[in-house]
Design a binder for these strands. Structure first.
Length: 207
DNA sequence: AATGCGATTCTCT
DNA sequence: GAGAATCGCATTT
């Protein structure tokens, strides 16, 4: 059974939420389709103290306003002209912070996930393509049909939510530096990326 | 109106 | 490991 995570889960520090989101289940439903992935890699962005966060220093522009809203909404933005990144807002309202979902492991809806990424069924994929399905923040957006249309959308909704499996699953958590934020001075060294050790769908491994 | 770049990915080498 | 793709949006002129 999958149990949907509620407000209280996300109404906490983004670093705690990011860590605890590992092993949870991302559920995406649309057009009678059900896609499910296990979250294996996340990053926290904490605006108040984090130069890598879009909302650092109380910065407010139309694009980043979702960061200031109540927890449990999606913050989806476009990047590099052709990709998207998907975050979940955490913490108290007006405290800009969130968690970037960087990678999931495909669990259910494999054909749909494969078609969204490579226009092929799952069985037609090569090994390399399977590992490439959802092993990155923008890859998983393509695979799970997440785009700006879901920006500010509730993640307690039927079309998009996060749940937990009943039952115990053990894994080791690795903490490391976040990816792609080398411009952010001291913040680039914060160990706010979390991933499941030895999971094949993690986007970048540490040395 | 013009400029510059990014919480990335893909395709080479 | 380097370079390109490609454009919305914030910033500068």
């Amino acid at each position: 059974m999958i149990e949907k995570l509620g407000r209280n889960f996300f109404e906490r520090d983004g670093r705690v939420v990011a860590k605890e989101l590992l092993g949870k289940i991302l559920v995406r439903k649309y057009e009678e389709k059900v896609l499910i992935g296990k979250i294996v890699e996340t990053e926290a962005y904490i605006g108040e103290i984090d130069k890598a966060c879009h909302a650092y220093g109380g910065r407010k522009t139309p694009k980043i306003m979702p960061l200031y809203s109540t927890c449990g909404i999606a913050y989806v933005y476009s990047i590099y002209g052709m990709y998207h990144c998907f975050n979940v807002i955490t913490g108290e309202e007006n405290d800009p912070q969130g968690v970037l979902i960087r990678a999931v492991e495909p669990i259910e809806g494999l054909d749909e996930i494969s078609k969204n990424r490579f226009k092929k069924t799952f069985n037609e994929l090569k090994k390399k393509e399977i590992l490439n399905l959802t092993s990155g923040p923008s890859k998983l957006c393509i695979a799970f049909n997440i785009d700006k249309g879901l920006n500010t959308h509730s993640i307690f909704s039927d079309g998009l939510y996060i749940g937990s499996f009943s039952g115990i699953e053990k894994f080791e958590i690795v903490k490391s530096k976040r990816i792609g934020i080398d411009y952010s001075e001291e913040a680039k060294d914060f160990l706010w990326r979390y991933y499941i050790k030895n999971n094949k769908f993690v986007s970048v491994l540490d040395k």
